[in-house]
C-alpha cells in the first residue's frame, strides 16, 4: 500500500512522537514534582504553611494553565530558540511541552499528596520525623499509586499535545497527519497515523494502570 519512503517516514514519526512525549513528561516532572511538593507543604494544612509561597505557586500554575497550548507554543518561540537553537522539530517542541506540562503536573502532584491521611503524617511527626523525612518517606511513598496514575494521565495528555504541535512543524506523527491529511488530502496516511496515536495512547494507559495495580499494597 505504502512505499518504502512513507513507511520509513511513519517509523521516524513514531520515534519522534515517543521521544517528545517521554522526554517532555520527564522534564515536566523535573519541574512539576518539586513545585507540587512545595504547593502541598505550604498550603494552609501543610507541613510548613506559607501563604506567600503558596500564593505565588498557585498564581503561576493558574496563569500558565489558562493559556491555550497552541498560543503558548507561539509565545515561547523566542525562548525555545534561545534554549535549543531553533524553533521547529521535535527537540524544539519539547520546550513548550515542558512549560505547559509543569504547572499541570504540579497540580496533579499536589492533589495526590493532599490525599495522604493526615493521621499518618501526625504519627510520623510523633515518631520524631523531620519535614524532609515526612516528604520523602511518608508523603511520596504513601501517595505513589495516585502519583503514578497522575503521571499516566499526564503522559497521555502530552502525547496529544505533541501531536497538536505538528501543526506548527513540531515533527512526529501529528506533523505527518497534518502534512498529508490536511495539506495533501492523503487520507490513508492520516488514518494510519491516527490509529498509531490511539495505539500508543492505549499502551501508555494500560502500562500505567498495570504498574499502579502492581505497586499498590492496599489491595487485598
Amino acid at each position: 500500500m505504502f512505499d518504502q519512503k512513507v513507511i520509513e517516514m511513519i517509523l521516524v514519526g513514531i520515534k519522534d512522537t515517543l521521544y517528545m512525549t517521554l522526554v517532555s513528561t520527564f522534564f515536566g516532572y523535573v519541574l512539576g514534582l518539586p513545585m507540587g511538593i512545595i504547593l502541598n507543604v505550604t498550603r494552609k494544612e501543610g507541613l510548613r504553611p506559607n501563604r506567600i509561597i503558596y500564593g505565588i505557586g498557585d498564581f503561576i500554575c493558574n496563569i500558565v494553565r489558562s493559556v491555550p497550548f497552541l498560543i503558548l507554543l507561539i509565545l515561547l518561540i523566542p525562548f525555545t530558540k534561545f534554549v535549543v537553537g531553533k524553533s521547529y522539530g521535535s527537540t524544539a517542541t519539547i520546550v513548550p511541552l515542558v512549560i505547559c506540562a509543569a504547572p499541570y503536573i504540579a497540580r496533579v502532584v499536589e492533589s495526590s499528596l493532599n490525599e495522604v491521611d493526615a493521621g499518618v503524617i501526625e504519627a510520623a511527626k510523633a515518631m520524631g520525623a523531620s519535614n524532609l523525612q515526612i516528604i520523602f518517606k511518608v508523603l511520596l511513598v504513601e501517595a505513589r499509586v495516585s502519583l503514578l496514575t497522575g503521571a499516566t494521565i499526564t503522559t497521555g495528555i502530552l502525547l496529544g499535545y505533541s501531536a497538536m504541535s505538528g501543526t506548527v512543524g513540531g515533527g512526529g506523527l501529528g506533523d505527518i497527519a497534518v502534512r498529508y491529511g490536511y495539506y495533501r488530502w492523503q487520507a490513508d496516511i492520516m488514518i494510519v497515523t491516527v490509529v498509531l496515536l490511539i495505539i500508543i495512547f492505549q499502551l501508555i494507559q494500560n502500562f500505567g494502570t498495570a504498574l499502579a495495580r502492581f505497586i499498590d499494597h492496599r489491595k487485598h
Binding site: 511527626k125 499498590d216 499494597h217
Partner: peptide, 21 residues
C-alpha cells in the same frame, strides 16, 4: 524530634503506613 522518638504514640485510627508491610 529526638525527645519525641522517646515518646511513643498510638491512635484511634491506627495510622499505619498502608504501602509498607
Amino acid at each position: 524530634r529526638k525527645k519525641r522518638s522517646k515518646i511513643g504514640m498510638i491512635f484511634q485510627s491506627f495510622n499505619l503506613l498502608e504501602q509498607k508491610s
